[in-house]
Amino acid sequence: MLLELTGLSKRFGPVEVLSDVDLAIDAGEVCALVGDNGAGKSTLVKCVAGIHGIDGGAITVDGEARHITGPRDAAALGIEVVYQDLALCDNLDVVENLFLGREKMRGMMLDDDAMEQLAAETLSSLAVRTIRNLRQPVASLSGGQRQTVAIAKAVLWNSRLVILDEPTAALGVAQTRQVLELIRRLADQGLAVLYISHNLNDVFAVADRIAALYLGRMAAVLDAADATQSQVVELITSGRSGTLGLGADTNGART
C-alpha cells in the first residue's frame, strides 16, 4: 500500500472532526472520498497534506510510519494536492505556472528550454490536446484547461499520490468529461489518486474504490465494481446501507 491511514483522529477543540478513520490507497487506483458537507473530507485531505497535525492514529507511506508536519514533508513523500481554487497565477504563462517556485536553473539563468520541453512531455503523456500554446498566459485559459494545468503541475514532480479536491465542481459538461478522463489516466499510469467529489456520476466514472465518510467516521470502503448508486447515497446520508456501514442507531456518536 502506498498510503495507509490507521485510526486517524483529529479534534478542533472539543469538536471531534475525524475519529478512528482507516483508509488505504494503492498505486494505480483512484479512490473516491465521498461524504456530506462537514463529514470531514477536507480535514482528512489537510491531515495527509500536512496542513493540520493529527491528534491520533498513524499515517504510513510505503509501510513506514511518517510524521507529516508540513506541506513540504508531504511533497517530499510524493504527495501533491490540487485544491479547488487551483492556486495558479493568471499573469504567468502555462510553463511558468507549472514550475512556479521550483524553476529549473542553468547557472544564474532560468532554463526556459528545459522547462518548456518537460512541460510539453508531461502534457503529452497525459494525452492533453486542449492546450496548444504553452506560452499563453493562464488568464486566457478556460476552466477545464486551468484544471488541467493544475493537475499537470501536481504530476510534474515525481509525485506518487495526487489528491484532487472537487476538481470538476466549477466546470461545464464537456470540460468535466475531459478532466475525468485525465484523472483516470493518472491512475492508469501508476499514480495513486484520492478524489473528492460530491457528484456521484463523476465518482462512478473514475473510481476503483469508494470511501464514504459520515460525521467524521469511515462508514464503508466499497469496490466501485460492486457498488450501486443507492448504496452510496445511503452511506453518505445515514452512514449505513444494509449490512454495510456503521453500527445501528449510533447516529454517528460513539457507543
Binding site: 468535466t176 475525468l180 450501486t228 448508486q229
Partner: peptide
C-alpha cells in the same frame, strides 16, 4: 457513448453491478 458514460456513470455501473 463516451459522453453518455461520463455523464451517467453512476446508473451504468450500478446496473452493471446488479
Amino acid at each position: 457513448l463516451r459522453e453518455l458514460y461520463l455523464s451517467t456513470a453512476a446508473p451504468v455501473r450500478s446496473a452493471l453491478a446488479e
